[in-house]
């Protein structure tokens, strides 16, 4: 039901996503683009969820913890709260180095 509004389709400068950040790295969210991420959810749902959990353009994120094995899932700080998510789905969140 949602198209992809313009802001998140624009590539972030470094072209990185949240799923590839290492522990301790900080970044700023530049967009949410769920295309290319395989989930059980209907189209557009992952994007909406990410926004509802605070992963939206402009949010500051920092990777705090990594689980085992495979450094997955990750716990990240999103502005004032902490969120656990898997790297696979974190790919939908585009990031640029923190300002």
């Amino acid at each position: 039901m949602s198209g992809h509004p313009t802001p998140e389709t624009g590539q972030s400068p470094g072209g990185r996503h949240l799923g590839e950040l290492k522990k301790g790295e900080r970044a700023r969210v530049t967009g949410v683009d769920e295309r290319g991420v395989v989930t059980t959810l209907p189209e557009g749902e992952l994007e909406r969820r990410m926004i509802e959990m605070g992963l939206v353009e402009g949010s500051q994120v920092e990777v705090l913890h990594e689980a085992f094995p495979g450094r997955d899932p990750i716990a990240i700080r999103v502005n004032e709260h902490t969120l656990a998510l898997r790297r696979a789905e974190a790919r939908a969140v585009l990031v640029a180095p923190a300002a």
Partner: peptide, 13 residues
Amino acid sequence: KGAREPLLMELPA
């Protein structure tokens, strides 16, 4: 059968 639903969970203080 099927993939697991995504994990998106707040970790409270």
